[in-house]
Design a protein around this nucleic acid. Structure first.
Lengths: 251, 251
DNA sequence: TAGAATTTGTACGTATGTATC
DNA sequence: CGATACATACGTACAAATTCT
């Protein structure tokens, strides 16, 4: 029943205007960095911490929520709270393709179609694709998986008139690159990528198997063909505690 | 005293296994997107929402915390909760420089030295700079400001032996580019950038004027000179609700 | 300028729900 | 099925920051 914390249990008081939960979060963060709980191992329970630190369980919960949000730990209802490890690299360049990317670091990368549909181009999609607003677009929502862990949730939009069979072709091939290739597009390049970050919405948490409060990196991108004609736009949400985006200079 | 919500107050019940606070967050998110509260305007108080929705104030707080984390609103103790607006673009390319960047969209960009010191190269800094671990590095911590709003908090590391006077020169010029230029480096290029995201730590919240629970985008980068010799590495934290990173392809 | 009112932040307590072991 | 552990939701009280009087 001894636990692997490196330091003796400290006591916390509301001193110097620092909230108790912050002091506790700071303490746990430094313990995690010092290796008190290696990746994958379980931290003591909330109740245990509450007792050892002499605070209410809610105060511990607030501190743990902070660490979840920082991507250091993950909480699973009914199981416990677990330390997380390093992130996978997701390189972005002119020739970014999901399948080739994660494939070098993880086994069994793959895409799964979650939903698809026809929707009118709105706002930035129309502008990026160079079509008038409300032009019919085919939208594919796909889940990227590496080593059986979901890492990305992407929405891709194509001009329906140009790629009327993109959904069926994606379903058959399981890859945007392969689908486009079969539809006569041998090569495409990424024109630009916009990267944002925010906390995951509930629907994203479910798909990406994230706990509430986790962060998503959002990459919106425009891809065009060799002639510079816009091909498709996409908005990909990554689990920020599993992925980092890498931008390499290309000579 | 009428408020500008577009929809009538809904009532929430713990149905279909969806937590009350999630339903409330979903509702407020859609109202925000529909323009119920334009950027800069105040939302009704927590107590008001609690009364109107027929729930406890803490339940409203949990929902609002979610929106804060998503970068949609910001809460200020003693003042209220305010809707946020669009993000500034921060382009990344071979020739990324802070001063030129924000300058095109916002007035009065500038850098301020917050701290500096000598520290041994550790881990990724040593690897990136191509020096042995524990090589003495000079570290500058700087705050990037646009329109009097802090947008970035950067740490830059230089090999101390090569740039012994980088701190003084930065203090005089207020810019890394200008300081390097005065030290004989006319040009430098960005070799790579790694982008992560997580919730801001307390110290970052204070510097970047963020509320607890806000998200930071973290860009770690290596810059080298025309010969390909590593010049300096940096780790920049951006307020994710004020900035988006843009990666443009360069022909 | 002092103080009251307002509004968000912290911390506690209690009870119950839900998922896992 | 029971025990464990995290999740939700209520209540209460006070602290801290801001704004109004």
């Amino acid at each position: 029943m001894t636990d692997p914390a490196l330091s003796p249990d400290p006591t916390f008081h509301r001193a110097a205007g620092i909230a108790l939960w912050r002091q506790i979060a700071d303490f746990l963060r430094s313990e995690l960095r010092a290796g008190a709980w290696p990746a994958g191992t379980a931290l003591p329970t909330e109740a245990t911490f509450a007792h050892r630190f002499g605070v209410n369980r809610h105060t511990v919960r607030r501190a743990v929520a902070e660490l979840v949000a920082e991507g250091l730990v993950r909480s699973d209802q009914g199981r416990g709270t677990f330390a997380l490890g390093e992130r996978l690299a997701y390189p972005i360049g002119r020739r970014t393709r999901f399948s080739e990317i994660v494939g070098r670091q993880a086994k069994a990368p793959g895409g799964r179609l979650i939903a698809s549909g026809l929707e009118p181009a709105g706002g930035w999609q129309a502008e990026a694709l160079g079509v008038v607003p409300d032009t019919p677009l085919l939208c594919l929502e796909t889940l990227g998986v590496a080593d059986n862990v979901p890492v990305s949730l992407a929405r891709s939009w194509f001009v329906a008139e140009r790629f009327p069979r993109i959904v069926e072709t994606y379903t058959e091939t399981g890859s945007i690159t392969a689908a486009l290739s079969r539809l006569g597009v041998d090569d495409y390049l990424r024109r630009w990528t916009r990267i944002r970050a925010r906390i995951a919405e509930p629907a994203e948490c479910e798909r990406l198997d994230l706990t509430a409060g986790a962060t998503v990196l959002i990459a919106e991108a425009l891809n065009d063909d060799a002639d510079g004609t816009p091909l498709h736009v996409s908005s990909t949400r990554f689990a920020a505690d599993r992925i980092e985006i890498v931008v390499n200079a290309e000579a």
